[in-house]
Design a protein around this nucleic acid. Structure first.
Length: 354
DNA sequence: TCTGGGGTCCTATTGCCA
DNA sequence: TCTGTGGCAATAGGACCC
């Protein structure tokens, strides 16, 4: 039952790709961010992080913290290309791995003769071939591996047992572990639980009372670095969507529907290109006060057709009828593989009779 | 000082149906 | 026929991740 998992994380990925394309920027604070008034930082180079700049920070604030920072607009095609190259290198070394997002992966190290040496070789080859630095964490499960890869980045290489992780991060804030975000952090704080050691020792009944029968015990498991070692290969997407935040909030219904059309066209095109279709069409509207509303409708047949998507999406938007200025509108399709059909697909293939 | 875009997963609620 | 119950699908919201 005991597994061995590595988590590989590319360091400051977007910024690193930009630096590899423009070596003259090496050593300078670089941030990758859009240009609009509401743009946020997607990645900051480590030089920029010294100024207190981090991901998800409004770009305007980042510029104020470090006026001399070089701001580069995101170039997602380039990031996808480098990501693909890195994943190919991983695939050449490791049979079973699971890509998460664009810049990280879990690797199943079970049964490897010399897992640490194998990971050293892997990061060396990734650097040689793509000039991307990667941080590696190795542990008995995904949780330990993930926290370990984060512990000494950039260019980190950390191997921990669950017990070592518990000791090392005993006094760390609960938000260190993935799965405890700002909201849970705050609610735990209200119970005077701020460190992982405190969370691990917390009274389970109080946590259940506060967080429910599932999440309560799950929080203690997180703080105990207790988790799954399963690496899921061949993950299939379950939804695809497009959304925009307006530079200025919009009140006109016509303008809103115009943007919805543009997004739906882009979405339909992408769905068709990826050969995906779904039964549930969903819209998302964020108002000026940041309340977010979603509306969805499930239709009888799978679709990736523009006319169908925009018809349903427009009807949902009109039905909702936002009563305040709108800052974001989005449209998505989910339900790619209905349970019934998936069950059928999972049946063993029947070979034609010989 | 206000908070992007693209996702995944979980939970609660509701309505339908056997 | 009435009432209860359990399962399931659809829906809405929200937390979280990179």
């Amino acid at each position: 039952m005991t597994g061995l998992v590595a988590h590989l994380d590319l360091d400051a990925f977007f910024a690193s790709v930009e630096l590899s394309r423009r070596p003259e920027l090496k050593g300078m604070p670089v941030i990758v961010a859009g240009s609009g008034p509401r743009a946020v930082v997607t990645t900051a180079s480590y030089e920029a992080r010294l100024f207190g700049i981090g991901s998800a920070m409004p770009a305007a604030r980042a510029k104020r913290l470090c006026p001399e920072a070089v701001v580069i607009a995101p170039n997602s095609a380039a990031y996808r290309e480098v990501s693909r190259a890195v994943m190919e290198i991983i695939a050449a070394h490791i049979d079973r791995f699971e890509q998460l997002g664009i810049d990280e992966a879990f690797l199943d190290l079970e049964g490897l003769h010399s897992p640490k040496a194998a990971m050293r070789r892997l990061v060396a080859e990734i650097y040689e071939q793509t000039s991307m630095r990667a941080s590696i964490g190795i542990g008995p499960n995904r949780l330990v591996a993930k926290v370990a890869s984060d512990a000494e980045k950039p260019n980190g290489f950390v191997v921990l047992t669950a017990e070592q992780a518990r000791k090392r991060f005993a006094d760390a804030p609960v938000s260190l572990v993935p799965g405890i975000g700002p909201r849970t952090n705050e609610r735990l704080g209200e119970m005077a639980i701020t460190t992982l050691a405190q969370l691990r020792a917390a009274d389970e009944r109080s946590l259940i009372e506060r967080f429910g029968a599932r999440q309560g015990p799950a929080l203690i498991a997180l703080a105990s670095f207790d988790g799954s070692a399963e690496v899921v290969t061949d993950r299939e997407a379950v939804s695809e969507s497009r959304e925009t935040t307006f530079d200025q909030d919009i009140s006109s219904g016509d303008e809103l529907e115009g943007e919805l059309k543009r997004l739906a066209a882009e979405l339909a095109e992408a769905l068709q290109r990826n050969n995906r279709s779904g039964r549930t069409i969903r819209i998302k509207v964020r108002l000026d006060d940041w309340t977010t509303v979603t509306r969805a409708k499930t239709i009888s047949a799978l679709t990736n057709d523009y006319a169908t998507i925009i018809e349903v999406a427009t009807a949902l938007l009109r039905e909702y009828g936002p009563q305040r200025p709108v800052r974001l509108v989005g449209v998505g399709v989910t339900g790619f593989t209905p349970a019934r059909e998936r069950d059928q697909l999972e049946l063993p293939l029947e070979l034609p009779a010989a």
